[in-house]
Design a protein around this nucleic acid. Structure first.
Lengths: 306, 306
DNA sequence: CATTCTTACGTACTGCGTAAGAATG
DNA sequence: CATTCTTACGCAGTACGTAAGAATG
């Protein structure tokens, strides 16, 4: 029997004019698309594409099937939408976020969700990456937004953007001229970092090791707010998301250090359980990915985001 | 994403008022149907059935989904039909049949196919079950109708009816009164049988062994016509399809013996390659199964079938 | 000769069936 | 207590991805 997958394949091959393009669109390989179309051709015992040319030109029958597929796919989509109807959908989604997210991106994200699904209630939960991971597994949250350090088959990881971090300290704590500081210059300083509970913490721990940075004076905190506070007080040097502290930078309370090599950006992702089958969650993830321009927001200030 | 399988499950559960019934209809298990419906419910995050009762009562949402599913399934069916349009479809189907089939059922079957698919040409090929099997594997025929002796995963076997066989001989060859003959009484006679190339031959060979019939005088032929000829000539006793020889019985050329235990009926089946994906072949098999009442026809005469 | 689709093959995973469990009337 | 649906688990068949092959312009 004809399946939606086969129709999708045919639809996108015709629409995009190529098997490779369709494969890309469908997040799969040319090979798979080719086979789905061939299945369809076997089922109706009709050539749907003219293979004599290099490009995929649909036959008349192929075109006919295309319009039919378009219709059926659209109707399925409408059916889905009807059941996920924003006006009707009354649900709670429990979203776990890290502190940075909570301080910067979350309000905009929640706004966006509310625009698309007015009846959906968001329960945000702030915690470290590691704790959120456990809560996700324990089914205490439906979705989490955190630094991507997940190589676990139990999760569905959707990248949504990158978080920029900069070295910061109390103005004047580290003296440097016009030239960038070498990263080794920080080694003598007390460095305030996030612990291994944080995805960012792990990420930068590894990065430091790779760059031979071995300060004896790492001070670990599990709270971004605490780190910011300590940095403000001149207790040491830390790498902070510019997004979260720009007001303080602009008010002259924090100084951004020009250090080389620059810190990498932290890849942020929306993570759900791999076995989730909920279309609303899927929609929300798409929203995070497409409509909320995470990367840009992560470089704006707390104040801006309101 | 919603699949047709899920929709089919929901559709038939609602229509037939039970998971078990739907499972039967869909040739699968309650378990599978249950899971397909649950998948659907997870996808739309909506209860589609009221589980508090013992019987499956759809919720309002379930009913809504039901009508949508009905529509989508109907549209898919129409799409299939459009591509298999009898007026348009010009094809050849190579059908292998055994002699009995050729002598009795085939003309009616071909008629039926022609009625439904006027542009489809049937190429009938008559051979023994074993040879047909090989030809099917060699892709020299698309479909075969023969006694079901296939326990091979490479084949798709669809039962279509049963062939009745009776002990026969030249009138007067075997004397017996009103009482049925015991089967052992035949042991002294020359028995004409089909060889192991024939599904029926194998079937009855096994049956004979199970009933302790061990005549030294088995005469094996690979041709039903030859068997009939030999029987007519009084050469021995044989078991023949009444369907193929009724005119001769009625003309007094053959005598049907009342033997106990009675011969079993031979299960006939339409056999196609397991990997066939052709909707036309599938339709033709359905035709054989549903519209041609094979069992009844196999008890009518050659003359009747024209 | 590069690009585009097909084919072949090994693997991973989804979905199935069996059988036991829970709930209902 | 029988019937009906759900859950758990092991297996099998499907469908996928990789990589090589064929064909075209």
């Amino acid at each position: 029997m004809i399946t939606f997958k086969q129709m999708e394949a045919l639809y996108w091959v015709v629409k995009l004019g190529g098997f490779s393009q369709a494969a890309h669109k469908l997040h799969t390989t040319q090979s798979a698309v080719s086979k789905r179309v061939q299945e369809l051709e076997a089922l109706v015992d009709t050539a749907l594409f003219d293979r004599s040319l290099r490009v995929a030109r649909p036959t008349d029958k192929g075109r006919e099937m295309y319009v039919a597929a378009e219709r059926l796919l659209r109707e399925r989509e409408e059916l889905m939408q009807r059941f996920l109807d924003p006006e009707v959908q009354e649900r709670r989604i429990r979203i776990g976020v890290t502190e940075v997210t909570a301080m910067t991106w979350l309000p905009r994200f929640v706004d966006e969700i509310n625009k698309c699904f007015p009846k959906v209630i968001i329960d945000p939960e702030v915690d470290s990456g590691a704790m959120l991971r456990d809560k996700l597994l324990a089914d205490e949250i439906d979705l989490m937004i955190a630094a991507d350090s997940f190589r676990d088959a139990r999760f569905n990881v959707t990248p949504i953007g990158k978080l920029r971090l900069d070295w910061m300290c109390r103005p004047g704590l580290v003296t440097h001229g016009a030239k960038p500081l070498r990263i080794q210059a920080l080694q003598e300083r007390r460095i305030l970092t996030q612990g291994p509970q944080s995805g960012t913490g792990i990420l930068f721990h590894d990065w430091f090791q790779a760059h031979g940075l071995k300060s004896a004076e790492f001070v670990v905190s599990n709270s971004l707010v605490a780190l910011i506070g300590l940095t403000l007080s001149g207790f040491g040097v830390s790498y902070l998301p510019i997004a979260a502290v720009r007001p303080m930078v602009e008010a002259g309370l924090l100084e951004v250090l020009n250090v080389r090599p620059a810190l990498p950006e932290a890849p942020y992702a929306a993570v759900a359980r791999h076995d989730h089958k909920d279309a609303l969650i899927t929609s929300v993830i798409r929203l995070a990915q497409q409509n909320c321009d995470f990367t840009r927001l992560f470089q704006t200030t707390l104040a801006d985001s309101h």
